[in-house]
Design a protein around this nucleic acid. Structure first.
Lengths: 195, 195
DNA sequence: TTTTATTGATTGATCAGTCAATCAAAAATA
DNA sequence: TATTTTTGATTGACTGATCAATCAATAAAA
């Protein structure tokens, strides 16, 4: 079996497996055995490639955020006007794979982990800043800087809040309803400023 | 040392200790030893009174939510008009002890735990429902039922979102700013309906 | 004496991490 | 081409640490 060049394949498989296990489990207290089993390799191999469980989990967060970032970049490129770009950011935040229960569970676990892992915290701060600055940049084309900051804070909080409420799976809100609610917030705020 | 009637004293001490340890630690992966030590008793005693770690943690969530509930009830009683009651609900959500970093860390840990503990999930669902219905009930006095539902969803999401963003401790938002942002959301939404 | 409070010592399970050994492809050499 | 050597991939078995949970023993009140 042993072919050369397995490293990237295994690393990806293990990171994907970690995401799945974390999502199912709904927590970062997962074992290397579970992850390795899910990836179809031995626990020892996971250690061989990642050195430690912590490193594997950190890499998992990193990859996850990278993918989200890519989606955002793509969506922003497709949108023309500032208003369209705002909608694009919102839409990506709630797109199917992001809003799936397992993904939400994983996000929540990452946020909790950030309390004790400085590196995880750093990644999430970067995500939060990026979301914020994407919103502010486009809002500034539509209103004054001060208002843009305030509205962006509100919109970002609403997006994150819709996530966390979704995680409880009580009275789940549909993707469309979540998008509508956030869009509505933006529209209402912007309209209010024009009067 | 052994006096009679220590049970309620110890239970309270252990639950308080659990809150503190969870808050410091920023996660529910705390040991019975840590909690017991913080409460100044032996780990064995914690087991004696709670039977298991899980039960102690569940009781901790319960007590925590109970306290929040009490604050809300008190604040609601003091407020007269529906609009004042809405402000009261918002104010309590962000009041000093609720918005302290350790408290937020604990909340986050509870949300994460809810993914795997049915009982924890149930408690948090009750909290979410209560927040929602408090908002809806008072909004209905100010606008139509459909709008009340929608605005309540948005406000609740914004409150939770401000919490989770606070947990990252990057660009922390002050209590006053958080209250202002949520108040502003309500006011803007209600004004928009009147036009 | 009986009951309640309390603990130290212990057990059993779980896991992260290590290590020596194996296997097969690739590279070097004859 | 055939043979040997090297190297990457992989694992089973093991270790050490941690921790929840148990229990028998002790001490003080009732």
């Amino acid at each position: 079996m042993p072919k050369v060049g397995m490293e990237p394949v295994r690393r990806k498989a293990l990171v994907d497996a970690a995401m799945r296990v974390i999502g199912d489990h709904g927590s970062l207290t997962v074992t290397m055995s579970e992850i390795a089993k899910q990836a179809g390799v031995s626990p020892a191999l996971a250690h061989h490639y990642f050195g430690s469980k912590e490193q594997l989990l950190i890499e998992t967060v990193r990859v996850h955020l990278q993918r989200l970032r890519d989606s955002v970049v793509t969506a922003l490129r497709a949108a023309k006007t500032p208003r369209e770009k705002l909608s694009a950011v919102i839409r990506v935040s709630f797109q199917a794979d992001q809003f799936a229960p397992e993904t939400i569970a994983a996000w929540l676990a990452f946020y909790a982990e950030a309390q004790s892992s400085e590196e995880t915290r750093r990644f999430l701060v970067i995500y939060a800043r990026r979301l914020h600055s994407n919103l502010v940049a486009n809002l500034k084309a539509l209103c004054r800087a001060g208002d843009a900051e305030r509205i962006a804070e509100g919109a970002a909080a609403m997006i994150d809040g819709l996530y966390i409420r979704q995680s409880l799976r009580s009275a789940p809100i549909s993707t469309e309803a979540s998008i509508a609610l956030t869009e509505d917030y933006l529209t209402t705020c912007l309209n209010a400023l024009e009067d």
